[in-house]
Amino acid sequence: MSPRGALTLFTVLALLSGCDDMTVQPKAGAWSPEATLVTPPQDTVAWGDAALKPPPLTLALLQRGQQRFRIDCTPCHSELGDGNGMVVQRGFPAPPSYHIDRLRQAPTQHFYDVMTDGYGAMYSFAGRVSPPDRWAIAAYIRALQLSQHPPATAVQTSR
């Protein structure tokens, strides 16, 4: 190899080696295919996903429920819970309003189960909403129902 050729090769290799700058390393990121393709074994529940007993009703629980409701539920159910959210206005089949008798009389567990398993056109939210948050949202739905249909005694008291 001529000296000039060697110099060229040297320069090219030196410059090329600069490309290997460790910004990309052979390790699995949170969403590399190896990580996302892991499916949980049968009959197992992800950590923290086990069914819970309903927690005691507190103001903090309701506030948490309101926050999560506005994230995960309002696109369809709307902030009022009347089933006329933005996505429904764009063509998604309207869910029933929370303020119908069937749902007012349904046990709280019903809302929890719908979030866990889905219902009708509604997909399961088990992967997005953790069990404690499901209870919080369920509690908030109860509060929504109450807000649209207050018992006469409560109205009087507040006066």
Binding site: G29, A30, W31, T36, R70, I71, D72, T74, P75, M86, V87, R90, Y123, G127, R128
Partner: peptide
Amino acid sequence: GLGIDCRFCHTTVETAGDAGMPPTYT
């Protein structure tokens, strides 16, 4: 346009190092 919260899709942003890329299911 739709007013969807960031956390509707990026679910783990408050609880984990990565924000969470939504699965197709979402």
